[in-house]
């Protein structure tokens, strides 16, 4: 082997190793940035207030202090609030899953006049910020007349789950335009033969959908369900409008630190921060556990649903 080639191979190896070191550093750095808020939350939730003024204390408190969790847990009425949130979130995400799957299927596999116009409406719901229709939605549900069917003042649906039910079942809830879009992309990529085979066997549209299409769509549906679940769990915007006084996690979390401090007649930024961070840990812990178990479906789902195609 000539010396020249040997030298070239040597430098190539150096380059490869050098790059993998650089890559490792970059990835670790990004991971650090991503974990940083979580580290801050965990560490300050375990602190006493004095630890915050202590210059010696960086992230690791002097003593493990679990009192914050006890107080916040109690004030949030965590078991009850958690159960309410879980029920609401499961209900909403399952409804959204059902409606978006049906709607996405309708867009993907059938052709009719006005289809592209209706699909433009789906895109339109994605583009308009929900903040813009916030006030009319609020008022319509506050004085709900079923669009003229019930006698005037109407009934007050705020504080009940009905606004969530109506919007979720019709595919107009939080980020539902995106879900419809993803399901449509997914069903579009299914081979036409499947349908034709089902048709030859004499299956109607509904049977074909239930027996042939749905079983194949399970991975995509799981992805939609997980996204809907996470976004609904985190959602403050709609939840605080529709259920402003209910015992659900986002609403309770938002006010828990002020409630505690008002009761003990002591208001301070540091203490508030400690309480807030404790509450946030209690809030996201279930999501993190869910993500740790099901991360495969979150990540592979996006790749497999053919959002790209």
């Amino acid at each position: 082997m000539s010396a020249n080639l040997e030298r070239k191979l040597f430098w190539e190896r150096v380059g490869r190793i050098g790059w993998s070191i650089v890559r490792g550093v970059i990835i670790l750095g990004i991971c650090y940035v991503i974990f940083y808020p979580l580290i801050v939350k965990i560490s300050s939730s375990l602190m006493r207030e004095v630890d915050m003024f202590d210059n010696m204390v960086q992230f690791v408190p002097r003593m493990l202090y679990l009192e914050n969790y006890r107080i916040v847990w109690e004030y949030m009425d965590y078991p009850v609030t958690f159960r309410n949130s879980l029920v609401l979130t499961l209900m909403v995400s399952l409804m959204q899953l059902a409606s978006c799957t049906l709607i996405g299927y309708g867009f993907a596999r059938f052709k009719w006049k006005g289809q592209s116009l209706l699909f433009a409406c789906v895109v339109f719901t994605l583009v308009v910020p929900p903040q813009m229709i916030m006030i009319p939605l609020y008022l319509n549900f506050r004085y709900f007349t079923f669009f003229g069917l019930l006698p005037e003042p109407g009934i007050n649906l705020l504080g009940s789950i009905w606004p969530f039910v109506f919007t979720s079942l019709t595919g107009t809830g939080l980020k539902n335009g995106l879900f419809i879009y993803i399901m449509r992309q997914f069903f579009r990529n299914m081979p036409k033969d499947l349908e034709e085979a089902a048709a030859i066997d004499g299956a109607g549209a509904v049977r074909t959908f239930l027996r042939v299409m749905l079983p194949n769509a399970v991975p995509a549906m799981l992805t939609i369900f997980l996204f809907a679940f996470v976004w609904q769990w985190n959602d403050y915007f709609f939840t605080s409008i529709y259920l402003s006084n209910a015992k659900v996690l986002p609403v309770v979390l938002e006010s828990v630190s002020m409630n505690i401090m008002n009761d003990i007649n002591y208001i301070a930024d540091h203490y508030r921060s400690i309480l807030d961070n404790t509450g946030m840990i209690l809030f996201i812990a279930p999501l993190l556990i869910l993500y740790a178990i099901l991360q495969r479906y979150f990540i592979e789902g996006v790749e497999r649903t053919g959002i790209v195609g």
């Binding site: 049906l102 867009f107 209706l118 409406c121 339109f124 939605l137 919007t167 079942l169 019709t170 107009t172």
Partner: peptide, 16 residues
Amino acid sequence: GILFTLPFAVGFVLFF
């Protein structure tokens, strides 16, 4: 197709 997408058409008009 219209039947499958009907929920959205209704929801879009009423809630959007």
